[in-house]
Write a protein that binds this DNA or RNA. Structure first.
Lengths: 253, 253
DNA sequence: CGCGATTTTGAGCACCTTCAATCCGTGTGG
DNA sequence: CCACACGGATTGAAGGTGCTCAAAATCGCG
């Protein structure tokens, strides 16, 4: 309670991207009234679960989260990884979440009540369009993953995922060193994202390491041979265009 | 040229759903200025291709289309089926399409220039929110397919797809008879949507037919045992909620 | 009626899964 | 300080779902 909302926002790392950028570019005073407050979610805890009423969205300030769907017998599909700056849980037109969201490591989020966000968007077309851009980008990521899981081999899928994460992270942190990537995922997470088993992910990553394309250990990945990784990923020209497109979801208008 | 745009819109089957509903609920005069005109796309032709500049969106008036991504060696993933009333090619924040769209049978579309649509949305929050809802629903469908392809068996995937299509079609045409479904897809399309081979789709559908769950032939599917099909699809409670949610993407506010 | 596209069926193969055991890094308690 | 426990990574062997190759049957259509 010692600090005002405005003060916290001013120092927020997400201030200039995603939702906050959209809101403030639309109307600088918008941001103030929208946020409910910060929340810290511990490792492995759910931000929300499938079936929960969707009353609030979460802007990820620090840490990673993932969206997932569970089948009744326990099979899990990870639908998306949410990185700092991403907004999750914004499902206009839905009453209940069709998927859950879980924290990877400790995650700090900014809570935004859906009602306020929708009200603000209704009166500010620019903000609503920003949200639309964001949803469109999420959709593009989902489509990319779908192509991966539906039509690529294990090696291609692993390479594609690494490149996707690499691209998304570098965008937000251009200052960071070249080809090193700190990823808080277990091989089980990767497996559930790519529609494979942990065992097979292990064999596949080992193979890529053995080939000298990547190296990894303790949650840190090194891309030793970016060109070969790209080639293995089978990244189509179109997918590369998509990767570029993500770079600035509010850049063009 | 004999007929005015307003006249065509008045008799358009998509008038009360999707984009048109969003636009007219926001401002009844909006619709007039937005459309460029009708276009008829012949069977198998592309509405647009991966990499094309995205200058116009298409509101499907009649017929089916599908979005797809190609890998360099020809492998194809079908990302989505677009039914009458769906808007495709609306990719705010993108310059080029990351996927292509192709007509299944002869398709009639209403062409909407992106520039006009974006301009209108910027000034009408309600419209922009409607577009956001639409994108959110598309994303939900993509997530459902991702779970299917990543974590379900061939039988479960086929059942899931049939139910998805069934649900979406019935929503737009509630008057149509019970469990019969006219689907203009070849087994190859189904295979490319589900991440399987045509041969295996054939065996799987045969199995479902042999079990008495469905029957099919000549592009017409009959759902003989809906409950069993639901059970086979492994439709989670959450997915069922999602299916309901789709039903009215502008219904709640 | 005949051609091409699609569906159907068969047989062998491969990628990935399953089951299982071992190794390793970290943290905890004695 | 070490024994132990725990989660995750790694490796091996065997099996299965779905793939590939191939051919026949059927459908749609001019």
């Amino acid at each position: 309670m010692a600090e005002t909302a405005a003060g916290i926002c001013r120092r927020c790392p997400s201030r200039d991207c995603g939702l906050c950028r959209a809101a403030s570019s639309s109307d600088p005073t918008l941001l103030q009234g929208m946020r409910l407050g910060r929340r810290t979610v511990p490792t492995g805890a759910d931000l929300f679960r499938q079936g929960d009423a969707c009353g609030e969205a979460f802007n990820i300030v620090d840490g990673w989260a993932f969206l997932y769907e569970l089948l009744e017998d326990g099979r899990r599909q990870i639908l998306q990884f949410a990185l700092p700056g991403d907004l999750i849980g914004f499902q206009p037109g839905e009453r209940a979440f069709p998927f859950g969201a879980q924290a990877l490591g400790s995650v700090e989020v900014c809570v935004v009540p859906m009602a306020r966000l929708m009200a603000a968007a209704r009166h500010h077309g620019e903000l609503a369009l920003g949200l639309a851009c964001m949803l469109s980008n999420e959709g593009a990521l989902a489509y990319g993953r779908l192509t991966s899981v539906g039509r690529k081999t294990a090696q291609e899928r692993c390479a594609s995922l690494l490149l996707e994460l690499f691209t998304r992270l570098r965008r937000r942190a251009p200052e960071a060193p070249g080809e090193t990537l700190r990823i808080p995922l277990t091989q089980t997470h990767i497996a559930d994202a790519l529609g494979l088993t942990p065992v097979h992910i292990n064999r596949t990553l080992s193979l890529l390491r053995q080939k000298g394309v990547i190296d990894y250990g303790q949650g840190v990945f090194h891309i030793l041979d970016p060109d070969r990784l790209l080639a293995i990923a089978g990244t189509s020209p179109a997918a590369r265009a998509r990767a570029r497109g993500q770079s600035e979801w509010l850049g063009l208008h």
